[in-house]
């Protein structure tokens, strides 16, 4: 039974530290932050994915777990106790962003956030990021984003202030692509 694996050793401090990492990653799109290295989550969850879930998801948060991560669903249910819903989607393969709830003009913060587990950050396909939080256009590399991602993101970015935010996790690292960032080829 996968709940046999513990969550954060120190729930308050560990969650605060991971929250800080997510906050910094959102504020500076594409920067890579370490988190969750002390965790022993059940496969196929990476440490960073597990840390982000433990930090952001609770009994009042709607979470959808993609089939690829279903083996960890019991662990997530036990430690995070999410309710069914699409406030957050945790997945190992990026869904079509256009099918997700991008929020409304009145409540743009009601949009979905995707926690995407990828193979690697800082290596692989190169992108150029620009927008709030980046003084100059910045190079960003990730392995595991689908082909056609740039076009899909452009459509998402155009919805601003509506739109989907993306948290990328690989191993014990995370980076974020908030809806405000524009993405080009690197």
């Amino acid at each position: 039974m996968s709940i046999a694996l513990p969550g954060f050793a120190n729930p308050v401090l560990d969650a605060q530290s991971c929250f800080r990492a997510v906050l910094d990653a959102m504020a500076r799109p594409g920067t890579i932050h370490a988190t969750g290295h002390a965790l022993t989550p059940p496969p196929p969850l990476s440490q960073a994915t597990a840390a982000v879930l433990l930090t952001l998801i609770d009994a009042e948060t709607g979470l959808t777990i993609a089939p690829g991560l279903a083996a960890a669903a019991e662990w997530i249910a036990f430690h995070c106790g999410p309710c069914p819903g699409c406030d957050f989607i945790v997945t190992d393969s990026l869904p079509d962003l256009a099918t997700l709830d991008a929020g409304s003009d009145e409540v743009p913060e009601g949009s979905a956030t995707v926690i995407l587990q990828v193979a690697a950050l800082g290596a692989g396909t190169a992108f150029t990021l620009a927008g709030p939080g980046l003084q100059h256009p910045t190079r960003f590399q990730a392995t595991g984003l689908p082909p056609g991602f740039i076009a899909m993101w452009a459509a998402n970015h155009r919805l601003y202030p509506r739109g989907i935010d993306l948290i990328l996790c690989a191993g014990d690292q995370l980076a974020a692509l908030p809806r405000s960032v524009s993405i080009g080829e690197g």
Binding site: I3, A4, L5, P6, G7, P11, F78, H79
Partner: peptide, 8 residues
Amino acid sequence: HVVLRGPE
């Protein structure tokens, strides 16, 4: 025992 969650 090992603690899996809590006490919280």
